Computed example of a mutant assay.
Amino acid sequence: MRRIEPFFPLSHGIPRVDDRRIISGIVYVIKHGLMWRDAPKGYGPHKTIYNRFVRWSRLGVFNRIFAELAGAAGAPDRIMIDATHLKAHRTASSLPKRGALSRCIGRTKGGLNSKLHTVCDGQGRPIVMLLTEGQMSDHKGAVLLFSRLPQAKELLADKGYDSDWFRHALASRGITPCIPPTANRKVQHAYDKQLYRQRHKIENLFARLKDWRRIATRYDRCAHIFMSAITIAATFCFWL
């Protein structure tokens, strides 16, 4: 609590409910996939928990906590990149879209879903995350994340990231790609098969995040609210 407390807004006027209790209630609801009104009474009024979660999400509090704690670990020597689908519940996509901001919900063969693009370090801890529509390809997500990649020596990725542009862009930054080539390539690029076995760590990362019920299934309509839930799960699983 001492590590994340400096990121919370200061209270004005009447002292607010204990932040530790509210954060515990938010974590409990997200992890167990409850409706906010079903939060245990020991965490206080459910409206207080929900309102605090939404207010701090709009202020970017949880995103800053994740970015600060992940950045404090320093630049890793090895990074990995991958993406996973998160199924959108009907409560997240039933009402018409309002406002200019995207909900980051798209339609694929598996139905309505969002896609989480993630870069992690060699230990399988998330460093950078991006939420997009479900139909966006892994390669397009890598293009959006490229400017935020840390300066590492190696990058591990699957065949979905095998493109000349991505390989040349990594080489221009001094990052060695460890990416298996697709079968239809005329020139089959060599890669370190022994090193590639370490890529299971990013798959384990997604598995741990999806253990949190409100991450595996998206119930939140607003993209920034859902992204806050993801950053809370990532922070508590890997950085605290």
Score class of each variant (00 low, 15 high):
142 A>S: 15
126 P>L: 14
157 A>Y: 02
123 Q>V: 00
120 C>W: 07
167 R>M: 10
159 K>Y: 03
162 D>Q: 03
177 P>G: 08
114 S>L: 06
170 L>T: 03
157 A>G: 13
148 R>H: 11
168 H>S: 07
172 S>V: 05
135 Q>D: 04
115 K>T: 05
173 R>A: 10
134 G>P: 03
141 G>W: 04
130 L>R: 11
125 R>G: 01
149 L>P: 04
160 G>N: 07
141 G>E: 04
166 F>Q: 00
140 K>C: 01
142 A>M: 14
161 Y>R: 01
135 Q>K: 14
167 R>Y: 02
115 K>G: 00
131 L>T: 05
134 G>C: 12
162 D>C: 07
117 H>T: 07
147 S>T: 06
127 I>K: 04
163 S>W: 00
142 A>G: 06
115 K>R: 13
144 L>A: 13
119 V>N: 02
143 V>R: 11
167 R>P: 02
133 E>K: 11
174 G>D: 07
152 A>E: 03
169 A>M: 13
127 I>H: 02
123 Q>D: 13
138 D>F: 08
125 R>V: 11
156 L>W: 03
124 G>Y: 09
167 R>H: 12
136 M>Q: 12
167 R>I: 10
139 H>A: 15
167 R>F: 00
136 M>F: 14
151 Q>K: 15
140 K>S: 13
119 V>C: 07
134 G>N: 06
175 I>H: 06
129 M>Q: 09
141 G>Y: 11
137 S>A: 14
138 D>G: 03
170 L>N: 03
131 L>W: 11
143 V>P: 01
165 W>M: 00
142 A>N: 04
149 L>K: 07
152 A>F: 04
174 G>R: 13
118 T>E: 02
120 C>V: 15
121 D>V: 07
166 F>A: 05
157 A>F: 03
122 G>N: 07
167 R>K: 01
128 V>Q: 10
171 A>S: 12
155 L>C: 06
154 E>M: 02
172 S>A: 15
172 S>Q: 15
162 D>H: 10
153 K>Y: 00
150 P>K: 11
129 M>C: 12
163 S>A: 12
139 H>I: 15
115 K>S: 10
161 Y>W: 05
128 V>F: 10
130 L>G: 02
136 M>D: 04
156 L>F: 13
156 L>T: 05
118 T>P: 01
145 L>A: 06
171 A>R: 10
162 D>Y: 02
120 C>M: 08
151 Q>S: 14
122 G>S: 08
173 R>H: 05
147 S>W: 10
138 D>N: 09
139 H>P: 00
172 S>H: 11
148 R>A: 13
140 K>E: 13
169 A>I: 12
153 K>V: 02
117 H>D: 04
156 L>R: 02
174 G>W: 14
177 P>L: 14
122 G>R: 08
165 W>Y: 08
123 Q>R: 14
158 D>Y: 07
